[in-house]
């Protein structure tokens, strides 16, 4: 299994789409935005924009990584016959999807950590050791629902459809989740939708941590709920995709 995880990680790190969307985009936008508005201070919490932006862009990078490393590659593997090649080896079927999930989580780390690194280096963002120790693991594990969503897309549709769906899913979740601009700027209806999304829960946990609060209960419950539902669906979709008729 370690062998398989290594293979998946190697291939994605050589994938241009992954590098551009996942690594270059969030870091690039962080540098841009933090230079424009980084020194503004949020009135409600007293937290500098450079810190909030760090959470937002790290969240976007992590979300993008988890969807982009799952949906399209997985759909392509199903269609190209690579899945069949794996099915006729001793590799157990459950290990294929487990590996996909683990690899996706591993591939979230570069996106997450590079934005944090950029924030620390260019904007001298500093948090207490306790805040760092909560923020990074929470933002890491919090991508599970998104990786599951990517796997669902990859299991259900062919690559031609998976590509736009993954991109819509990624930007839709990022925009409505408030990662690009505050959700409060949206009309009421959109705001209600936004609050129900896992990306909003995900990012707000991050924002609360950097504001020195404990992660809010509803957001944690929200993301856990999404994780359970989407993982369940991912397993169902995977079974459906690999059923031996």
């Amino acid at each position: 299994m370690l062998n398989y995880v290594k293979l998946e990680a190697t291939r994605m790190l050589r994938n241009k789409r992954y590098i551009i969307f996942v690594v270059a985009f969030p870091v690039g936008f962080y540098l841009l935005y933090s230079n424009l508005w980084g020194s503004q201070v949020d009135e409600a919490t007293g937290v500098e924009a450079s810190v909030i932006l760090m959470v937002s862009m790290a969240a976007y990078g992590a979300l993008a990584a988890s969807i982009m490393s799952t949906a399209v590659p997985w759909s392509q593997e199903r269609q190209s016959g690579w899945l069949r090649q794996l099915q006729i080896t001793p590799l157990p079927s459950w290990m294929i999807i487990a590996t996909k999930m683990i690899s996706a989580l591993l591939l979230v780390l570069p996106a997450l950590l590079l934005v944090v690194l950029a924030a620390v280096i260019t904007q001298h963002v500093s948090l207490t050791p306790g805040e760092w120790a909560t923020l990074i693991p929470v933002m890491w594990v919090g991508t599970i629902p998104f990786a599951a969503l990517g796997l669902i897309i990859g299991s259900l549709v062919p690559p031609d459809t998976a590509q736009p769906l993954a991109i819509i899913g990624m930007f839709g979740l990022a925009l409505l989740g408030g990662l690009w601009f505050p959700v409060d700027m949206l009309p009421q209806v959109m705001r209600t939708i936004a609050h129900a999304l896992p990306s909003y829960d995900y990012a707000s946990i991050g924002w609360e941590i950097v504001a020195g609060h404990t992660p809010p209960g509803p957001a944690v419950a929200g993301i856990l709920g999404w994780a359970v539902v989407l993982c369940g669906l991912a397993i169902y979709a995977y079974r459906r995709a690999t059923v031996r008729a």
């Binding site: 190697t10 050589r14 001793p90």
Partner: peptide, 30 residues
């Protein structure tokens, strides 16, 4: 299949584009 008694070359099947021949063969081998 689970015991590794069967190896097969199916009619269709493309490879993983980002990997080298050696990496791919070694992965399946293991």
């Amino acid at each position: 299949v689970a015991r590794g008694d069967i190896g097969a070359m199916l009619q269709e099947g493309t490879l993983i584009p980002e990997l080298t021949v050696r990496e791919l063969v070694d992965f399946i081998r293991r």
